[in-house]
Simulated assay, not measured.
Amino acid sequence: MTTLDQRTLRIAYSPCPNDTFVFDALAHGRIPGAPALDVAFADIDVTNGMAERGELDVLKVSYAVLPYVLDEYALLPCGGALGRGCGPLVLTREAGTDLTGRTVAVPSEKSTAYLLFRLWAADVVPGGVGEIVVMPFHEIMPAVRDGKVDAGLVIHEARFTYRNYGLHKLADMGEHWEETTGLPIPLGAILARRSLGEETLTGLADAIRASVRAAWDDPEASRPYVMEHAQEMDPAVADQHIGLYVNEFTADLGEDGYAAVRGLLTRAAAEGLVPPLGPDALRFP
């Protein structure tokens, strides 16, 4: 692993189990030669805004924000969340609801979940959905249950808990994406400031990979950190969450990972949802 200078990098990622699992060893100084981290916890809609404002050295963001920030930040080839069978869900109170003209709650309009939803809707809701309402993630399922909105777009552990709210899965955005592209689902990315320099960026990627491997080698070592920041989550749900979102693409994007990212952002740009990517935008370092 490339040895980095000992500057402290300011980083923000979510308190979700997959992020704390991935970064546990690195955040706690257990990766030799890695930089010290000054960690802030924030939901992804907050870190997306941080990236757009050029704050912090390293950020976990949605892939949907990449077209707006890649001049200043580089996409790291590891540490993020891609996968199969792990896409966002559209939930409704009644099974089989027609979403034409209906109100849909979403956690952010600059999220991969939202891009996947709009691409799905363009294919299967020809009349178009109605009003989009942005609300905090934890409010979406109660809002659908209580009839405040007609449908909700949910992510992460909601895959395992939506039945507790008496809700129905109308569609799985990941299934639609995989069926139409054959590619994994790009969800969350790790970005680092380009001005850190090539050596630091390469060393940081090596350190993140080492942190992922350390968590896989000894999952119990990360459990206190994971559960400290997921205090209201059942440990079994936390384990499901990690199992779903931490996988081979977390260790390295690889050809399929990069194809998925470029494919999503190219299709979204064609729909006018994001600016187009430049030909070298995803190059690392």
Rank of each mutant, 00 (worst) to 15 (best):
M1P: 00
T8F: 06
L9P: 01
R10C: 01
S14F: 08
D19L: 07
T20L: 01
F21T: 13
V22E: 01
F23Q: 08
H28E: 06
G29W: 05
G29K: 07
R30G: 04
R30W: 01
P32W: 00
P32C: 11
A36M: 03
A40Y: 06
F41E: 12
D43C: 04
D45M: 04
D45H: 11
M50Q: 09
R53P: 01
R53F: 08
G54H: 10
E55P: 10
L56S: 07
D57V: 08
A64I: 02
V65A: 10
L66D: 13
Y68D: 03
Y73A: 08
A74K: 00
L75K: 02
L76Y: 11
P77Y: 13
G80E: 09
G83C: 05
G83V: 11
R84D: 10
R84T: 11
C86M: 09
L91P: 11
L91C: 05
T97L: 15
L99H: 11
L99W: 02
G101H: 15
V104D: 03
V104H: 06
A105N: 15
E109S: 08
A113D: 10
F117C: 01
A121C: 08
A121E: 15
D123M: 04
V129W: 08
G130Y: 05
V133F: 04
F137G: 15
F137C: 07
H138P: 12
E139Q: 10
A143K: 03
A143E: 01
D146F: 01
V149C: 13
G152D: 06
V154E: 03
R159G: 03
F160Y: 15
R163G: 10
M173V: 03
E175N: 12
H176A: 15
E179L: 07
P186W: 05
L187F: 13
L191C: 13
R194Q: 09
L196W: 02
L204H: 04
D206Q: 01
S211Q: 14
S211R: 06
V212A: 14
D217M: 00
D218A: 15
P219M: 13
E220M: 14
Y225M: 06
Y225A: 07
M227A: 09
E228I: 05
A230P: 01
E232L: 04
E232C: 14
M233K: 12
P235Q: 09
P235S: 09
A236P: 01
A238E: 11
Q240T: 06
G243E: 13
V246H: 07
E248D: 14
T250S: 14
G254L: 10
E255L: 05
D256C: 09
G257A: 07
Y258N: 09
G263V: 15
T266F: 08
P275E: 05
P275F: 03
D280R: 11
R283T: 13
